[in-house]
């Protein structure tokens, strides 16, 4: 829980990996995530995210990534740097 200020993070969800179990939506303290018509998780209130990290830790499918907003942080945007390879 490094930063409880809203608006500094964004919730990235990989729909291809989401199985729609609903854990993230049910337990998000700020109701940032909802399940869409297809049953997949979607970040509907990005600006309310307090970066608690619950969804990221408890997504059984590794489909949610909560990131600090900065230029080039998102895949597909200009200047995107993939994370360094692990050991």
């Amino acid at each position: 829980m490094t930063d409880r200020h809203k608006g500094l993070t964004e919730v990235v969800i990989y729909p291809a990996w989401c199985k729609g179990c609903g854990i993230c939506a049910a337990f998000c303290p700020e109701k940032v995530i909802e399940l869409d018509a297809e049953g997949k998780a979607r970040a509907v209130r990005q600006e309310d995210c307090i970066n608690c990290g619950f969804c990221e830790l408890h997504c059984p499918d590794f489909a949610i990534s909560v990131r600090t907003k900065e230029p080039g942080a998102d895949p597909g945007t200009p200047g995107y740097k993939p994370p360094a390879k692990g050991k």
Partner: peptide, 13 residues
Amino acid sequence: MSDVTQLIHQYLR
């Protein structure tokens, strides 16, 4: 809290 999932992705096949 960020980077947890990205870290995990590094350890997946």
